[in-house]
């Protein structure tokens, strides 16, 4: 080893810090995430069987998934699942619902406006902002290329 620990502190720290078993994490994310999607498919087929069109069935599916996630968040179960599943519970739309419901519950003690009202967007806000902005930028390009020229 050349030089003192201080000079290459970052790489030294990386060396002595254990990393999680990626394989196990990835497997857990895979099967739990996959299961949530399968549950979504089940709901979708159910609503289609009731005679709904594809879009409407999709909306009802989403509402059901979000409602279940919010309930699991309220009972403190979603965070326990996430501890095990990682991206498996973060990536599905249920993770988005969890990111809305959890600050709303946590910050209720700080009032309706500055507590719940502001904080409800603390994690979901950026998702909405950048989603809307990215679709606006690409939409602008689409408008220019299809309708201007």
């Amino acid at each position: 080893m050349t030089g003192s620990i201080k000079e290459h502190y970052d790489s030294y720290v990386k060396n002595v810090t254990p990393t999680a078993s990626t394989l196990k994490n990835v497997w857990n994310a895979f099967w739990i995430g996959g299961l949530i999607c399968t549950f979504g498919q089940l709901l979708l087929e159910g609503f289609l069987a009731l005679g709904m069109d594809k879009d409407t069935a999709g909306y009802y599916e989403m509402v059901c998934l979000i409602l279940s996630s919010v309930l699991l968040t309220g009972f403190g179960i979603y965070s326990k699942m996430a501890k095990y599943a990682g991206a498996g519970t973060l990536v599905p739309i249920t993770g988005f619902a969890n990111s809305v419901a959890s600050p709303a519950i946590e910050f209720k003690k700080e009032g309706q406006v500055f507590g719940v009202g502001c904080r409800i967007f603390s994690i979901a806000g950026p998702v909405i902002l950048y989603g809307i902005f990215a679709s606006w930028v690409l939409g602008l390009i689409y408008w220019i290329t299809h309708y201007v020229f």
């Binding site: 990393t19 999680a20 990626t22 994490n25 990835v26 497997w27 857990n28 994310a29 895979f30 099967w31 739990i32 995430g33 996959g34 299961l35 949530i36 999607c37 399968t38 979504g40 498919q41 599943a85 990682g86 991206a87 498996g88 973060l90 990536v91 599905p92």
Partner: peptide
């Protein structure tokens, strides 16, 4: 649905861990 949904989550997990 299971496999594709699971794969999207698994790829994201690799990203988080790395």
């Amino acid at each position: 649905a299971f496999i594709v949904g699971g794969l999207i989550c698994a790829i994201t997990q690799i990203f988080i861990d790395k």
